[in-house]
Amino acid sequence: MSLRLLKAAAAALALCSALAPALAQAQTFERPVRIVVPFAPGGTSDILARLISPKLSEAIGQPVVVENKPGAAGNIGADAVAKARPDGHTLLLMDIGSLAVAPSLFPDLTYDVQKDLAPVGMVMFGPYVMAVHPSVPAKNVAELVAYAKANPGKLAVANSGVGALNHITAVALARGLGIDWKNVPYKGGSAASRAVVSGESTVIINGATATLPFVTNKQLVGIAVTGDARLPALPDVETFKEAKLPLADAGTWQGLLTTGKTPPEMVARLNAELQKILAMPDIQQKIAEQGGSVRPGTPDDVKSWLATNIESWGGIVRAADIKTN
């Protein structure tokens, strides 16, 4: 080997040696990690965060704390993560459908969904369950639509907050079916579910993870589910497709994100740990028991999903002329 090649190899080796500590530091967790859930405790995002946090803590050697910051259809919590230090120690776990509708629905949004947040990975897909309070005289879609048309304005549909994806879904359904029902916002899917159980509201369209237990316990009556197939826990409840309802593929897409401009090495480390957690049989079983399915993938998968759905759901918001006020 020539002297020139030897010098070049030595320089390359020295560069790698110099970069190695920096790369390792970019992937190291130096203090406790927060998972911000921008909804109240008990909803789908909160359930998932509390499943994942102990596993992530074990993997990174630091405490992982779940912090609920509800309000403004998830935007208060999302904004807090967008403005955090970009080092991967502040995470956001939420239904990213709410992020997809936010740019069209909130003209004064205080953060840029695609620039100020860095996707880590998708966590799960959970179909929506449409259910009613037992006082509503309906056991299926046809009976619910007939009742709604005969009693315009009487049904009150609980949602996770103005601009949440289940709110947009309810508005789009009403337009598509020619019915008139009220939309009532709550601070998260758990609060919305409890409101329908108590009779304060009468209808809910919400993630199966948070809503399914109320249906199986007969506190609510299941009407229909989104997704490709009926839920094993609700074999007699028809799908949106079977009932020829619009938005048959709507549901809760739960994703994990961190602050924009977080070093790519840290995002890659977070994604790697997330994939390991989602591959654990006990995690998969718990998610399946709640009516969901694990959706592993890359940060770019979430980035592409957001780009596509910001456009498609934005079209629905504009067509329905949905306003936050």
Rank of each mutant, 00 (worst) to 15 (best):
L212D: 11
T209R: 03
L165Y: 09
V197K: 05
A158S: 13
N159S: 14
V157E: 09
G189V: 11
A191E: 09
L165H: 05
V197W: 08
V203S: 13
L144S: 01
G207N: 15
P213F: 00
V157Y: 02
G163R: 09
A150N: 14
R175S: 14
L212I: 14
K182Y: 08
T209K: 05
R175E: 15
P213M: 03
A172S: 12
L144I: 01
I179L: 05
D180L: 06
L155K: 06
T216G: 05
F214Q: 07
K187V: 07
N166C: 04
V162C: 05
A164S: 15
G207Q: 07
N151H: 15
Y186A: 12
T169A: 08
S193N: 07
I205C: 04
S193T: 04
V197M: 07
I205Y: 00
V196G: 00
G153L: 08
G163D: 04
A170W: 01
I179Y: 11
G178M: 10
G178H: 11
L173S: 01
A142F: 01
I204A: 14
I205E: 05
G163I: 13
G153H: 09
G163A: 05
A210W: 00
P152W: 05
V203G: 11
R194N: 05
N206E: 14
V157A: 15
F214M: 09
E143A: 02
Y147T: 01
V145E: 00
K154E: 13
V197Y: 06
A146S: 03
D180P: 05
V171L: 09
V196Q: 02
P152N: 08
V215P: 00
L155V: 14
T169P: 01
E200F: 12
P213K: 01
V196T: 11
N206T: 13
P152I: 03
L177W: 11
S190F: 10
S160G: 13
V157Q: 09
S190H: 13
Y186E: 15
A192E: 06
